[in-house]
Simulated assay, not measured.
Amino acid sequence: MSQHEREADWSGLLSDIDAQIPPAEGVPEARSNEKSDLLTFLGSAYMLKVLHEFVLDPGPWRFNELRERLDVPPTTLTNRLKELTDAGLVVRESYDEIPPRVEYTATEKLLDFRPVFGCLGIWVEKHGWEEVRSEAPEES
Rank of each mutant, 00 (worst) to 15 (best):
E138F: 05
H4Q: 03
A19I: 01
E130W: 09
P22Y: 00
W10Y: 07
V55H: 05
E103P: 00
A19R: 07
D86F: 06
T85W: 11
R114Y: 04
W123C: 12
E93H: 10
G12L: 02
F63A: 03
F41E: 05
G26M: 06
L14I: 11
Y46S: 15
E93Y: 04
I21S: 04
L110T: 03
L89D: 01
A45D: 15
P100E: 10
L56E: 08
L120Y: 11
S2N: 05
G128T: 05
R80H: 07
G43S: 15
T85Y: 12
C119V: 11
M1I: 00
R114H: 03
R80C: 07
L51T: 07
A87P: 02
L56C: 10
E68A: 14
K49G: 09
R31M: 09
E29N: 04
D37A: 15
F113V: 01
V90F: 03
G118M: 08
V50W: 06
T75I: 13
L13S: 04
D71S: 15
S94K: 13
S32N: 13
R6I: 14
G118N: 10
A19M: 10
S94L: 04
W61Y: 09
K126N: 10
L51G: 04
P74F: 07
R31K: 12
L111A: 01
E68R: 15
A30T: 07
V27M: 04
T107L: 00
M47R: 08
E5S: 02
D18W: 00
H4N: 02
T76V: 12
L38R: 11
E83F: 05
A24Y: 02
L120F: 15
S44W: 05
L13Q: 03
D112N: 14
L13V: 02
Y46L: 14
P137W: 00
L120R: 02
R69E: 14
H52T: 06
L81M: 06
Y46H: 15
F113K: 01
I21K: 04
S36H: 13
W10S: 01
E125S: 09
W129G: 08
V50S: 09
A87M: 03
S2P: 01
V124K: 13
